[in-house]
Design a protein around this nucleic acid. Structure first.
Lengths: 163, 163
DNA sequence: GTCGATGCAAAGGCTTTGCACAGCC
DNA sequence: GGCTGTGCAAAGCCTTTGCATCGAC
């Protein structure tokens, strides 16, 4: 989103364009649509430059940009909220997460979107967004898992043991 | 799960059957498969009886039972972890959540499971679980939303404003 | 110049952990 | 009886908030 576009979106809500807000959004735009950053990571990355931004402001900006629909909050496994750039093409995209090492792949699926829409309309809901989280083990972790000789065939167990 | 079954599952892991663990699991079994409880709620409900259980133990039991695959951790919108009973029939079930009032409906979908499996196998992952979260507005909130004359057609915005 | 935004530090939830005692096996 | 589990209270994250100052408009 252009600087002017961001400014006017903010003004519409009676809010202001500041350097910090711009930098947070730019960071996501530079990294592209497949980055999932935590507040802490955003803070650290922005600090690396000669930029000055406080963690509190990062939190405030992330919330603001999410409420404007420019970022999207994710809820993956490992107990930390993450954010990603939200784009039209990205609206219905899903996450395949390795519960052991955190490796994340994205994918899209028209079938999933359709299933979400059917579910929403059959209950009279209006769909806002539809996210499939697939928790899994990646190839690397699968082989390590084997090495340890897990005591049970109940693989799902692994999903919660690494805390 | 029977008392004896629970005991032997615990013993297999070198752990013990205690009254507290049993009560936590029983609570979920009594409430049925569609209850989503937070740790705090589990604690309060168990305290109502003449039972004595500490919040710390509730947390420990929830984690333990989840790692055994008997409970399942949910990640819905409103910033609190919740748990539900995990059953075979329940393994691939999805949530339709109203982002405004929190009303939650569940549904199942073979299409979604299949999409998850395809995504996992195409990356060489082994699927553990597959949860679709559909964020939406329920009929009641939809009508209220209309009353307020929202300033923008970007409905997704509402998903994050109610914090 | 006004009013919103920032930075700092302190406060706030929720969750985990250390330790002594209790209780399952 | 040994060793795991519990309760309590304290500590730990992550996130939000109060307040003085700064800066966009």
């Amino acid at each position: 989103m252009s600087r002017a576009g961001l400014r006017s979106s903010l003004h519409d809500r009676g809010q202001r364009l500041t350097a910090q807000r711009q930098r947070v959004l730019e960071l996501f735009e530079q990294l592209g649509e497949s980055s999932h950053l935590s507040a802490e990571e955003v803070h650290q990355r922005l600090r690396r430059g000669e930029e000055r931004i406080s963690l509190a402001t990062v939190y405030r900006s992330l919330r603001l940009l999410s409420s404007m629909g420019l970022l999207q909050e994710l809820e993956l496994a490992e107990g930390g909220r993450r954010f990603e750039l939200s784009g039209e093409a990205h609206r219905d995209h899903h996450h395949l997460v390795c519960v052991r090492c955190g490796r994340t792949e994205e994918f899209e699926s028209a079938a999933v979107l359709q299933a979400g829409e059917m579910a929403a309309s059959s209950h009279g809901f209006r769909l806002l967004e539809c996210v499939l989280n697939v928790r899994a083990l990646c190839p690397d972790c699968l082989s390590q898992e084997g090495d340890q000789g897990s005591e049970s065939p109940e693989v799902r167990t692994a999903a919660l043991q690494h805390r």
